[in-house]
């Protein structure tokens, strides 16, 4: 039960971030490494604001906006300064390390004693003792659901259609007299906003911000997106966003099983890398297949 709750909690948090990676990697075809910086950015913003006594729910909005700004930064580096996509992400990710340290003030900022969205007086006042274990997973689910529905709705708007067009066929966007650079920046802003939102929630769940939490975020994101969208590719009634969430849960389940069955955590990075390689080779083939078709 504990492990199931753990998988759901972690899976839901990273699914929020994976929704963002879905936009960049799958829709825009942009391998955006900035999420390794924006995930902890959301956490740093949340931890420092909570220490200042801000309402925990408001920190979600502030973190979301902070992530969007960082995403716009990556977009501007790529579109305006003509830096290659991968490099733009790396530049932003590296810069954010220092920015995150500045925001949090130090590398490890605990918020055990602060009110969070999962633990506050208002909740304590009416929740029975037994329900407390399930509060976190319930709230996470609600936040994730809200994010997913909002994203689904957005992709159906005019701007959302342009976003999808920008990934598939840039010429189409230009022929509609729209600036494809602007569309890319919008996509990156939304994607990184989701990553920062996930980081904000993650920190509130764990009770402390730690500068190292961002490392490898992109791997989890890509794995979730690719596992999810590949598995449910032919199931037409499942939306890609739902598939991504399933992918995130499946990925966390696999990692947790691996640890559970005694895989030494020293080997975890190797397993992750091999997995990542399989995923990349597989998605590369698919991309080539798409061009041939």
């Amino acid at each position: 039960m504990t492990i199931l709750l753990g998988i759901l909690e972690e899976g839901f948090v990273y699914a929020i971030m994976a929704l963002g990676v879905y936009i960049t990697y799958k829709i825009l075809d942009f391998p955006d490494l900035s999420v390794d910086g924006t995930f902890p950015l959301g956490g740093a913003v949340a931890a420092s604001l909570l220490c200042k006594g801000m309402n925990p729910w408001l920190t979600l909005i502030v973190s979301f906006l902070a992530g969007a700004i960082a995403g716009i930064g990556t977009g501007l580096i790529h579109v305006k300064l003509k830096v290659r996509d991968l490099l733009s992400g790396i530049i932003m990710m590296t810069a954010l390390y220092s920015v995150n340290l500045k925001i949090a003030g130090k590398a490890n900022l605990p918020i055990f004693s602060r009110e969070t969205i999962f633990e506050n007086e208002w909740l304590e006042s009416f929740l029975p003792e037994g329900a407390k274990r399930y509060v976190t997973v319930m709230f996470l689910f609600l936040i994730l659901l809200a994010g997913k529905l909002a994203l689904d709705a957005y992709l159906k708007t005019r701007s959302g259609y342009l976003l999808r067009a920008a990934g598939d066929n840039e010429i189409l966007v230009t022929s509609l007299a729209k600036d494809k650079g602007f569309v890319k920046i919008t996509g990156l802003a939304i994607a990184n906003a989701f990553a920062a939102l996930a980081g904000c929630v993650y920190v509130q769940m764990n009770g402390f911000f730690e500068i190292s939490t961002g490392t490898g975020t992109i791997v989890i994101g890509l794995a979730s997106v690719i596992i999810g969208t590949s598995l449910f590719k032919n199931v037409s009634f499942i939306k890609p966003t739902t598939a991504v969430i399933a992918g995130s849960l499946l990925y966390k389940w696999c990692v947790s099983r691996a640890i559970r069955f005694g895989l030494p955590s020293n080997d975890l990075k190797l397993v992750t890398s091999v997995l990542f390689l399989i995923i990349l080779v597989f998605s590369e083939r698919k991309r080539r297949g798409k061009k041939n078709a």
Partner: peptide
């Protein structure tokens, strides 16, 4: 749009990835 055979192959590849991961977990267990 891709023919169903190709789709099937892609799906089985994804499944293979997942199975490999679980395999590692079980073996080390």
């Amino acid at each position: 749009k891709s023919c169903s055979q190709k789709g099937l192959r892609k799906r089985s590849l994804a499944l293979l990835g997942a199975v490999l991961m679980m395999g590692t977990a079980v073996l080390s267990g």
